[in-house]
Design a binder for these strands. Structure first.
Length: 336
DNA sequence: AAGCCGCGCAACCGCCTGTTT
DNA sequence: AAAACAGGCGGTTGCGCGGCT
């Protein structure tokens, strides 16, 4: 049963509060206390909805609100409490007198989250991000070595090492991405012994809105094929029980930009690494030489106009493969 | 000086839960 | 038991401001 928002009434003011409105609200609450928020606006002579009044009071006008920068102690407290409660801002706020949940939430989103990421911690789990990040500089260096490959071919051994490093980077990234994705899933009670289930990861990925359409198929065509359209968060059962088989399964269509995981700021790294490696010299296509990730994949991809993402086309009857979910531009082939 | 861009924060929105009718 | 109400919560948005080019 739904309810209409309390602010649906016509003519009620929205937006920033004026000093006059603040004064009316404070005066009223000083005189009558916090009664019914729904009735308050009328009684106080405010052309606002009760919800707006409550928010203004609790987040800004309340006399016991502590304003100004968060102290080092408060910061530590928030970090600690967040590791326990997660994004339960009101629960965290109860331990910080004078601070509102809204203020803490804003502080977290604008400062602490970034800080944790910079320090190499996952802001959701508070755990160190995998070794992949620690080894990024080396991996990047290795990847960059391949750039002038055509002009200065490396010997076979070096090439092999680099290929391994690149492949490892991809796998580690993928693992990290999935772990991070899983950590965002609220229903922890269904975790299996390995931490997460394939289904959960796929559900999370399903919940990510599509950014661009597959250049070959539009969504209606995909639906006509009985396929999953990522972003619509369908509850259709999966055809395959295994995540990995899903990743490589041709019936999973999607096409995303790498920004899907921008919260962690990882995609650019990945794009760089992959864009430097594993190019098929014969046709300039890109290769994902991973029998683990794509045992059945046989996507043929062509780029008619290099540099133009819209010119990328893929086979599987136009259904793109898993790697494109993660990476814009470079399209991977299975070479097994 | 003007325009652009990123950041911080107040406010809104939609959903959820507990209470009342 | 069901519907309506009220308040609370977390996520998101949009505006203002300051720094940079």
């Amino acid at each position: 049963m739904g309810r209409s928002p309390c602010c649906d009434e016509n003519g009620l003011k929205k937006g920033p509060w004026t000093p006059e409105e603040d004064e009316k609200l404070v005066d009223h609450i000083k005189k009558h206390g916090q009664g019914s928020w729904r009735a308050l606006p009328k009684l106080a002579g405010l052309n606002r909805c009760g919800k707006s009044c409550r928010l203004r009071w609790t987040n800004y006008l309340r006399p016991d609100i502590k304003r100004g920068k968060f102290s080092q102690d408060e910061e530590q407290t928030i970090l600690h409490l967040h590791s326990i409660h997660g994004n339960k801002w009101s629960a965290i706020a109860t331990h910080l007198p004078g601070r509102t949940d809204n203020e803490i939430k804003n502080f977290w989103n604008t400062h602490l989250k970034k800080k944790l990421i910079q320090m190499g911690f996952d802001p959701m789990t508070h755990q160190p991000i995998t070794d992949f990040f620690a080894s990024l500089p080396q991996l990047m260096a290795l990847a960059n070595l391949r750039e002038p490959m055509e002009h200065h071919p490396l010997d076979e051994h070096a090439m092999g090492l680099q290929a391994e490093a690149l492949q490892l980077a991809k796998l580690q990234y993928l693992q990290c991405l999935l772990q991070s994705a899983a950590s965002l899933i609220p229903s922890a009670n269904s975790y299996d012994q390995n931490g997460i289930t394939d289904l959960e990861v796929l559900n999370l990925l399903n919940s990510i809105p599509p950014i661009k359409e597959n250049p070959v198929l539009n969504s209606s065509e995909l639906e006509n094929q009985g396929s999953y359209h990522f972003g619509n968060a369908t509850s259709q059962p999966l055809h395959h029980p295994s995540l990995l088989s899903q990743l490589s399964a041709p019936q999973v269509p999607f096409s995303y930009q790498p920004s899907l995981n921008t919260e962690m700021g990882q995609a650019p790294f990945l794009t760089t690494i992959l864009s430097q490696g594993d190019r098929n010299p014969s046709d300039s296509s890109w290769v994902l030489p991973s029998p683990t990730l794509a045992p059945q994949a046989a996507t043929e991809t062509s780029i008619s106009n290099p540099g133009d993402a819209s010119s990328i086309t893929s086979s599987y009857g136009g259904v793109t493969s898993w790697p494109e979910l993660l990476f814009e531009g470079p399209i991977m082939h299975d070479i097994s």
